[in-house]
Amino acid sequence: MTMSVSAPPAPAPVSAGSFHRYSVHSDARHLLALEGMTRDVLLGLLEDAATEREWLRSGAPNRTDLAGCSVMLAFVEDSTRTRMSFEIAARRMGANALTFNAGASSLNKGETLLDTMRLFEAMGAQLLIIRHSMSGAPAYLAQHLRATGVINAGDGMHEHPTQGLLDLLTLRDAWSGEFEGKRLAIVGDIAHSRVARSAMAGLSTLGAHVTVCGPGTLLPADVELLGCTVAPTVEDAMEGADAVMALRIQKERMEGGLLPSLVEYAREWGVNHERVALLKPGAVVMHPGPVNRGVELQASVADSARSVILDQVANGVAVRCAVLKRCWQAWKEAA
């Protein structure tokens, strides 16, 4: 018996290699990151948030924009301000806001994150606001949940897009709506900061510049490829900047051997009055909170006229109203 192997049929062209890529902006039901978000979408959200802010300030009654929408607040990692800010925004907009207490949940009984979140989907939650210590957890849920819009309320060391938006709104006020040519200095733990990543992504899209600085142990690899400049000292970073953002120093960083002491950190990298004097006139001081007074921020700077920390908090509610509205709108259109 002879078996002849003939040449195979004409083949398809060899691909250079196409990965299965999940695009975080492919579906407006989700808000997963500011990186890659278009300028138009960013500016639109900021404009809308500014409008909502007026309404929130006016003390007008709750609205019904999100009537019929169940919003699940799943804060698998602890949070006070972000959770409350989302909760207030959701309630003011007329959503049915439910808080999931991860500590007492089936997540502690071995259920997977996805299975737990599928429960909420089955119970009819249309929007899921997720805070998780794992980078990529919201993108993961957006990929695997079919009918739920996913809003990232901070994922590990990746992004915190609503924080980024509230920072942008705060800077929009401070800079009179002009981002082009402006510069923000971010000081501190860049490596572990989702706040810094979202701020960098948003500001670079809007044409502003970011200078980062911090101890070498807290600067991530190739950070300049994110589109920022790395300054060797806090003075270099702050000199002539249009705003400064001090990042929270977590006590765990000492245990991990990343920092010698808080005293040393405060001396070398703390944002104090002398350093604030290096900023441009009118420049503002920001902090995502909670503040370690006397460590990354001198207490009197936090309380000074330059500080916009409480404006950031107020803007947070307005930004979250705008985000919820956008995601809910997209959810209804997709349904």
Binding site: E35, S135, G136, D155, G156, M157, H158, E159, R194, R197, P220, A221, D222, V223, L225, L226
Partner: peptide, 8 residues
């Protein structure tokens, strides 16, 4: 860079 970008 990719790890930095993804926060991993």
């Amino acid at each position: 860079f990719t790890a930095t970008r993804l926060g991993l």
